[in-house]
Amino acid sequence: MALMNRRTKVSDEIPTASLADIAFLLLVFFLTTTVFNEEKGLPIVLPEQSEEQDVSPKNLIFFIVQPDGRVVVRRGESEQEQVVAVNQVATILRTELAANDNLIAAIQTHPDAAYRHMVNVLDEVKLSGAERISLQELEN
């Protein structure tokens, strides 16, 4: 009879061996499902309201965004206009910047042009490395 003693005894403790597995599973689950809300975009600093600067026309290059997404390039001094595709803007501006460090890229957008057209041009201007950017609405 003494043989039966130990074997039949049921442990009175809650089994905790798998608790770590459960906890880690939950941890991994939450880590993988969490989506971080990253802020991404094209930063720009608008001019202060009172700030009005006189800029010599030779330091200006205009990118006029048409409602259909085409871009018209106009150098500040000349009246000559040139229609280009959006993806050419960066190349043009890069060569212009190489010639003149103080160049200001002025993006003039037609009021009816879609926001994305303006962002596409701004994107190109940013890619070219231009520091001085001006955003304007095209006046008729």
Binding site: E39, V45, A114
Partner: peptide, 28 residues
């Protein structure tokens, strides 16, 4: 939204300038 006409964006940036908040990001 990508199809919003630019005139609306321009109105907003002008309003922001009035408020003095000049650091703006176009979320993309």
């Amino acid at each position: 939204d990508r199809e919003v006409p630019y005139s609306q964006i321009n109105t907003i940036t002008e309003e922001l300038q009035q408020a003095g908040a000049v650091r703006v990001t176009f979320a993309t």
